[in-house]
Write a protein that binds this DNA or RNA. Structure first.
Lengths: 205, 205
DNA sequence: GAGTCTTAAACAAACGTTTATATAACAGCC
DNA sequence: GGCTGTTATATAAACGTTTGTTTAAGACTC
């Protein structure tokens, strides 16, 4: 009878399709505001497949968070943990991050907006990633800064400050899109990256 | 019979109690993640009272957003729309805002974290507030800045940038609280305000 | 008695998760 | 080449809760 089942070729994409749609919907309605039925139907997948692949809705969220944090951390390592002047390294880090945030803006929104949810499991999960990020910034930015006679700033202040500043465009985009029209078109990503880079370099100097 | 009804004195507090608990829970579980039954029972109020006072769950959210935006806008008007040097005015604005964000940190989290939810009604609501904020910044910061020979920066970039920077501590607090312990105690609010103030003043100069 | 506040009960709808069953691909064996 | 058991993927249906909202009636103040 007419049970339709994907071939293995098509099936290979199911898991990725779930993640892609989940990121989009979580960013728009929030995690709690997204139902698994809406998610599965938009991904063209049976409802039960989500629990099959990810164990639970929370498992799906964790996988999304992990993807984002891993990439963000990789950029920090690549750009900051190398030879060269602080200023130059920071500039590369900022440009790399802004481009990354733009390409992964929905991931970014999920990661930041689901921040304060008091599920201890999720918070602990995020804290372990943040811990590594803070350690890099402490070693590669804060310490060199005082060594060069610059300002003293705690990594637990600088980390959030840097991230929030670079993310500001994407964080406020849904509202700014409604505010902008009568003023001007949106700045290009390159202009934005340059503005943020200049701002942050002045800031820490 | 034993129907217990508050006296009018006690009742006068019901609406305020709902708002107070709602802000707290929305900040912790998110808007969609907070059930009206949890909310009403924690506020010591009957479930139906929420719809009685606010019409709907969304109406309650709107009232919370309005409270926050109105106060934030009031600070901007008070500190920026007056005689005096740009630098000095900005410093007052930053200090005032940081203190306000600290006192209303749960409001802040709700306002920012519920930002991207694609409910057109909510977005439009926020946009009208943001519009006024951007107008003030354009007139009181961006224009004087170029007049003084400073940098050119669009208000739709500066607004989010300023707000995100000042909010960074509160935005990341739930995670940073788990990261910090092995490093150091949290900086005092005064230290934080000073750090942010110095950073931002350098940034726009 | 009018008006404001409060209550318990009920509503249909949506929620995350689990179940039992079915299909497809591939392995080893004859 | 055909048969078989295994594994991974897919499906529809049902599970018991919980959701936001509405209703009709009661209590209190003035």
């Amino acid at each position: 009878m007419g049970k339709k089942v994907n071939t293995k070729q098509e099936a290979a994409g199911s898991k990725e399709r779930i993640v892609r749609v989940a990121v989009k919907l979580f960013a728009r309605h929030g995690y709690a505001g997204t139902g698994l039925r809406e998610l599965s139907s938009e991904a063209g997948v049976n409802l039960a497949m989500i629990n099959y692949f990810f164990g639970s809705k929370k498992g799906l969220l964790k996988e999304i968070l992990d993807t984002f944090y891993a990439k963000y951390l990789e950029i920090a390592r690549m750009e900051l943990e190398q030879e060269g002047g602080l200023q130059e390294k920071l500039e590369h880090f900022i440009y790399g991050t802004v481009i990354f945030f733009d390409a992964y803006k929905d991931y970014l929104l999920v990661t930041i907006n689901e921040l304060p949810h008091d599920d201890p499991e999720i918070i602990e999960h995020k804290a372990s990633w943040a811990q590594m990020m803070i350690a890099i910034m402490e070693k590669e930015i804060c310490r060199p800064l005082v060594a060069e006679g610059g300002r003293v700033i705690s990594p637990t202040v600088l980390g959030p400050l840097l991230t929030a500043t670079m993310a500001s465009r994407f964080l406020f985009a849904p509202v700014m899109d409604r505010v902008r029209p009568e003023n001007c078109p949106m700045e290009s990503l390159e202009e934005y990256a340059e503005t943020i880079s200049i701002s942050l370099l002045k800031m820490i100097s």
